[in-house]
């Protein structure tokens, strides 16, 4: 099957700084793919190279088999992009701007689809307002509609929920899921790792221009073997019990919480008899699940180079 997106040895340099270094990845049709990384990782540059905003120094980008430089009219027609920055043209109302954007993509008026976008994104009451009269959240909704107005097969969302309230975030992700179920491939970047964890089938993590991880979300989470056990005590301790030194015991909250780390080898079975044997006044016990945040910090934290000033 032709991949929705196929990136081969993509490279981009700004002056002496390498923004993206030898990036290769493939996204299958119908996938929700997350591209994560700290600020300056190269996510937006990658997206800009895919969408045509940024020139490619080296490498190739193919969208549903079409090269985005040699066959750019096709690739741009089947790609929808929601940029990270809020970009609107204040000369026009939402209504007019949506019609203009459909025209830019060569799509004749499709009133049913346009109305559906307006309805689902709650743009109806604001349809005839000029852009500069809209709130930030409403502008974001408009940008989603704008990216979808030509029914793209690949939808790129660059930080779509940045600065957006919880309600809109939920509504937006729900809508994205529905669009995905209808066959649209999604490539998204987000700073909300929980969202990426819930939304994405696979995740790539970039750091300082390099691809540092690419795996199915579950597999990526499984990389963090070390788990924590938090013991809430009925009466506080003055110091961590010496018997639990092997478990990296530390005290928090004035001695009322005991934090322990399970070793990579062996599990809770080794810890429980010791805990019981000590006769500690245990009130509650929890084992937080390792999240993408831990994976992210582990991968991006360990990849910092010794030359913080440059990435030559």
């Amino acid at each position: 099957m032709t991949p929705a997106l196929e990136i081969q040895h993509l490279q981009k340099r700004f002056g002496t700084t390498v923004a993206v270094r030898d990036l290769s990845l493939t996204i299958a049709p119908g996938e929700i793919f997350g591209l994560l990384g700290p600020n300056g990782a190269g996510k937006s540059t990658t997206i800009n190279m895919i969408s045509g905003v940024c020139r490619i120094d080296h490498g190739t980008v193919k969208i549903f088999g079409h090269d985005n430089r040699h066959d750019y009219r096709t690739t741009r027609r089947i790609t929808g992009v929601m940029h990270q920055e809020i970009v609107t043209d204040n000369f026009f109302t939402i209504d007019r701007a949506l019609k203009i954007h459909a025209g830019f993509y060569g799509v004749p008026r499709d009133e049913i689809w346009r109305q559906l976008l307006i309805e689902r994104l709650g743009l109806g009451p604001h349809l005839h307002k000029p852009m500069n009269k809209l709130s930030g959240g409403m502008k974001r909704r408009f940008m989603v509609a704008k990216a979808l107005i030509h029914k793209p097969r690949l939808l790129i969302l660059d930080e779509p929920t940045a600065g957006v309230d919880v309600e809109l975030r939920r509504a937006l992700w729900q809508f994205v899921r529905e669009i995905n179920r209808e066959g649209t491939t999604i490539l998204l970047t987000t700073h909300y790792l929980e969202e990426a964890e819930q939304m994405c089938d696979r995740i790539a993590i970039m750091n300082r221009g390099d691809l540092v991880a690419l795996d199915r979300t579950k597999q990526l989470l499984a990389r963090i073997q070390q788990r924590q056990v938090i013991v809430h005590l009925a009466t506080p301790l003055s110091k961590p019990p010496a018997e639990l030194t092997d478990f990296g015991a530390t005290l928090r909250e004035n001695g009322q919480t005991l934090c322990l780390e399970l070793p990579k080898e062996g599990g809770i079975g080794a810890l429980l008899p010791k805990l019981c044997g000590l006769g500690l006044p245990v009130r509650d016990l929890e084992m937080p699940r390792p999240g993408l945040e831990e994976v992210f910090i582990t991968l991006t934290g360990s990849q910092q180079r010794s030359d913080p000033g440059g990435r030559q």
């Binding site: 027609r77 000369f91 026009f92 007019r96 203009i100 025209g103 830019f104 993509y105 060569g106 799509v107 004749p108 499709d110 049913i112 689809w113 559906l116 689902r120 030509h150 029914k151 529905e178 669009i179 209808e182 066959g183 649209t184």
Partner: peptide, 30 residues
């Protein structure tokens, strides 16, 4: 729910040009 998405859009090659021209004229008329 969003069934209209299943209908692939048609493409009119000269429409991007006409739209940009119209947009530019509207811009100065506004």
């Amino acid at each position: 729910m969003i069934a209209p998405l299943r209908q692939p859009p048609s493409f009119v090659p000269w429409l991007p040009f006409i739209t940009l021209l119209k947009k530019e004229v509207l811009r100065f008329l506004r």
